[in-house]
Nucleic acid binder design. Structure first.
Lengths: 340, 340
DNA sequence: TTGTATGCGTTATCAA
DNA sequence: TTGATAACGCATACAA
């Protein structure tokens, strides 16, 4: 970077005009045909590119939105990010991705960091539970903020999430419909808001069918393959169930692995259902019945909300959006005889 | 963003000192104890945050590296990106991710776009074949550029990739060792450099064992589950093989699905091996024997090379790094009787 | 339609 | 240790 990049001034000199004319031309304002030609030539010749930092400084606007992601290596995030990107691509905004991990900084610390980056808006993507206090702080940011995931019950902030409870209800209803009464649950990690919502949804749905949840059949896990595997082994020790509702697809897949390892066949011996519908779920054996979470749509909608808030100061959209998930029936569940 | 953010000037006024002193303090230069106290108080009170754009403008250095990714929704990319991030986090650099897709722009167009963003360095991540012409252009950038993937044989550019041919050699050798002679190949897409390298590696390895490749047993595919599924169906029509080497894990998984659907059991009826070792591969049924690609390490090394090139003008590291993949043996392959 | 002059928020040079 | 001043590259109000 020791080489000096040409500036608007160099272009002006070469094209025999002034800086302001160059600037105007670059911003699509009208100039005389002659000067336009001279300018094009000069720009080409110098290989000139405008300096965005300078432009941003004077405009006090960056056309950049920040996306803060909890853990970029999580596969859930990629379709969400794609949804956000695609939407902002259309609007002519740049997306800058920041990642963090739980043990280093909090989301709000990141927000302060982004005060410096002069972003025009911000989206936080995380499946971890947020504190009221943190979310309150986010409301005070000098730019609009949209949350994907938990909003800690704060209704002043823009947020978007999937209706986790509703998704699990559908799952349990389906399982009930095909005869299952003894249903186990492999829960998500405690720190995850969505995990808790799904667990509550499970208990609720069971209650709705007049089945009191058997606490021994609800086992805590962590949304990983390994976690699902371990949880299933634990459940197999307990026994006395015909179906298991996993808190996500990965743990469902781990659970299937454990069942196979114990010589069971799915769905013959146990019905298993996941949550998320990640890409692989239709390709495993047996193809997994699950709840499709509209990841990309989630990202797209978040971008939409943020955009509206950025351009329209008094946007009055509903601050909370709850997307409906969809039950996808494949081959990991089987009809069973009801007891009574 | 209508609200005016406090500047260094406001801090100076409130702390009863000058802009320069504030600036020096912010950059860790020594100030008197009294002024330090006053400054801290003023900064706190005003909730002051430095404006990075202004700083970058005057420093002509951004502490930002650009990462241009072909398709953010591809799962391969996440561990690579994580490797890059982690490394630059340590170095105090910001990472800005840009995504593109094949039908919109070329990588070099992106590079020009980044002339404007004033990044200090750039990493291109793509599995698509690159043209000599494009790579040559990248060499002329005003900042260092590192390629992950194909380098079109241009040795002047920093690049890093996995030794695809070597990986496939190991696979074929292994298959040969356990008795397989009739081996099919589900190839990757034509536009992917790595796909071609793997296919060549396959032919080479077969030849090394004195087996002339049966062209009917090499079928083109596209690295997707669906593609692998279709390819396996086609192979099953042809018949006459005991093992299949898939160009990546996803198509291997699709192929297993097709085999199951036709009533075959893996590995009893066919041995199948993949490439990449994506997270799911050890959890499917049967657990997939594959070649582990060091994704995260790839990203880390790329970041390392770029960093060296950015800080040390005359870095003379070897421009091309080829990482060795590793055969991971699980349960998707079985020993068979050799014919002769 | 064009040019001059000013300012955006920061760092750096130089005297004090 | 501090303060005045001049950059950095660009956009814009105003005058021409």
């Amino acid at each position: 970077m020791t080489v000096m990049m040409p500036t608007i001034k160099d272009v002006a000199r070469l094209a025999n005009t002034s800086k302001s004319t160059v600037s105007r031309f670059l911003n699509g304002k009208p100039v005389k045909k002659d000067t336009e030609l001279a300018l094009r030539k000069a720009i080409e010749e110098l290989n000139y590119h405008p300096n965005m930092n300078a432009r941003r400084l004077v405009l006090n606007r960056t056309q950049v939105v920040g996306i803060v992601v909890e853990d970029i290596s999580n596969n859930f995030f990629t379709p969400i990010l794609k949804g956000i990107r695609d939407e902002f691509d259309r609007k002519g905004y740049e997306c800058v991705f920041y990642t963090w991990n739980l043990n280093r900084r909090r989301e709000v610390d990141f927000m302060k960091l982004l005060y410096e980056e002069q972003v025009d808006g911000l989206i936080f993507v995380s499946f971890t539970r947020r504190s009221r206090e943190d979310v309150r702080l986010m409301c005070d940011a000098p730019f609009p903020v949209v949350l994907i995931g938990d909003h800690a019950g704060v209704n002043e902030i823009y947020s978007i999430d999937v209706d986790n409870a509703n998704g699990v209800h559908e799952v349990v209803n389906y399982l009930y419909r095909i005869g299952h009464r003894k249903i186990a649950h492999i829960a998500g990690p405690e720190h995850a808001g969505a995990g808790l919502e799904r667990e509550h949804g499970f208990r609720e749905a069971m209650l709705n069918h007049g089945i009191s949840a058997d606490l021994a059949l609800i086992v805590q896990s962590d949304w990983t393959h390994q976690g699902g595997y371990n949880a299933m082994k634990a459940l197999l020790e307990v026994g006395g169930f015909t179906a298991v509702v996993a808190s996500n697809d990965e743990s469902a897949i781990g659970a299937i692995g454990a069942a196979h390892e114990h010589g069971y066949s799915i769905p013959r011996d146990f019905s298993i259902v996941g949550f998320d519908d990640i890409g692989i779920s239709q390709w495993i054996y047996p193809p997994l019945t699950t709840v499709r979470q509209p990841f990309q749509e989630t990202g797209r909608r978040a971008a939409e909300v943020l955009y509206r808030a950025m351009v329209d100061e008094e946007a009055t959209a509903a601050p909370r959006i709850l997307l409906k998930p969809e039950l996808v029936i494949r081959n990991s569940c089987l009809h069973v005889q009801t007891d009574g």
